[in-house]
Design a protein around this nucleic acid. Sequence first.
DNA 1: TTGTACGCGTTATCAC
DNA 2: GTGATAACGCGTACAA
Lengths: 335, 335
Amino acid sequence: MAATIHDVARLAGVAISTVSKVMSDSGRISEQTRTRVRDAMQQLDYHPSRHARGLARNCSDTIGVLMPLQRNSAFANPYVFEILCGIERYCASQHYSVLLLDADALQQEPKSVARLVAERKVDGVILHADDKAPALLRQFSEHDLPHLVIGRQPGPHSWVDIDNRHAGQLATQHLLQQGYRRLQFVGNHAADTISTDRLAGFAQTLAEQGLAPHAPALFATGGQYGEAAALWQQLRQQPTLPDALLVAGNPLAAGLLAAAQHDGLNIGPTLGIASFDNYPYAEQTQPPLSVVDIDLFALGEQAARELFLQLAKPSRLVQSLLLEMQLFARPSSQR
Amino acid sequence: MAATIHDVARLAGVAISTVSKVMSDSGRISEQTRTRVRDAMQQLDYHPSRHARGLARNCSDTIGVLMPLQRNSAFANPYVFEILCGIERYCASQHYSVLLLDADALQQEPKSVARLVAERKVDGVILHADDKAPALLRQFSEHDLPHLVIGRQPGPHSWVDIDNRHAGQLATQHLLQQGYRRLQFVGNHAADTISTDRLAGFAQTLAEQGLAPHAPALFATGGQYGEAAALWQQLRQQPTLPDALLVAGNPLAAGLLAAAQHDGLNIGPTLGIASFDNYPYAEQTQPPLSVVDIDLFALGEQAARELFLQLAKPSRLVQSLLLEMQLFARPSSQR
DNA sequence: TTGTACGCGTTATCAC
DNA sequence: GTGATAACGCGTACAA
């Protein structure tokens, strides 16, 4: 059995309350006993029991992270896990643990959030938002569970998000700098705020330059690679082709690139393509794809940081956009 | 404040010990009081506190999952997270929680495993093996922490792994069926057991058909996309080219495909290429890449299942290979 | 500055 | 069948 606070107290020749005070740095303890206690802890390899501590303090030093965890989601949505890594990193630095929870499962079971709260498993949660977020958010509020959402939300919820509008601006500026003038935007889904925000940045930058889009934005219905062929057909039926595409998602961009190339277009010189996020295969398309990359690890760290601030001060409401992003200019957007 | 066992007992008009027995289905309880207690629990929305339960039973109903969680690992190693999803799914079905831990951080801090054990944060751990696994494994054994490794290990450790040899056989059989005869293997790294196991299956299948490899296997030094160009130069310097390549990793396969194509080879008819794992971009290469896909979600589920068996019976030692895999025949291996 | 005693919410072991 | 009660290990008033 592992050592307890009693063992430490006995070895150091003090009372357990003294040991406790040394641990929490509270109360006035003489330097001498402090080091005696520290030595004893070292010697016994003592670490306080989570459970006892949680019971006494009524908290768990653990946060829950809710994301979609179905089969194949790691390949379909690797960025979610990149955020997760950032969260874990920051939590570890604050001596917090990360409990992984499946958002879909939680959302389906009626009283799962109630249980999470009642069991005191987590002090707070970070939710990766998708279309099913509102139902969970309502439950968090009902149970006074501190929470922070990744992805902008309506209503009085704390959230952090990427500034997709800004990303759209950066990408558009890049295309203009490369000399393209007949720009068109392609989004993943008309109701996807990521796409529409990026589109807003696109439109704004063009307007600032006194330019108009070559044609109205086009939208897929999900943003998968396979949808690109049909979209490309739509593009071809326009009176004239654009000279550059800004595509909201990586897979779709890769698909459009392939389709256009298959039609004999020279990607780069004849048709520029730029997109967002730096999936590994962005470098591996022929030609390699230009992207505005977003630091998702940093987003995760930021999310955790904000959640902790909120744990300390529950009234705090954060709604902030991250600007950490970087342009990778590759041949797909070089004339 | 949430309801406690006392509240339930009071409302049901019984003693707390009776409530506890109802929960654990132990002891003889009359059907009448059983339902009275159940009703009270429902009414109060009662869920037992994790901490109190953990303290009393000295366990946490939580397992730790140790994986590399650095920046960019979600994109570089999405398969790790696919496994994680499988683990979470199975744990949730058993009412266990999953604590996420960074293997690298744990491995660097000297007494981190000791702390994990002393704090009773987890009942056991699943480790995703890499080259740094042995140091952690030693600590698990020292502290009697039940553990299971994903990836074959020397020594008396429980592990589950993909049967990479079998995957190699399947892929090789496929290439032979397609009519290719001058096969050559390309591995990620000469010391990478995944590569060497796949190579073993390759060699065995050829031998069974009375064939020899076209040329000795070639190895990269990491398996990244960028290394493919240099490897392709090596291949070209051989007296004759193979008519098909079996490549241990997806990124490398995509790179070789591009390099060969750049050299004017007609992928499929002139040079067949097959690989392993079904990364999303396997479908997106030109032509799409044939792969033997491995069910990593199932691997995760299996890992969790085995860890639980071991928690129940610590002497149990499992060392098993999973066969769940599937061939995706695509144009890259069609003559 | 240090020590005592109780509470936190369970489980498990008895006695009834 | 049911109920009291002693752990479990830590935090913390309060007393010394």
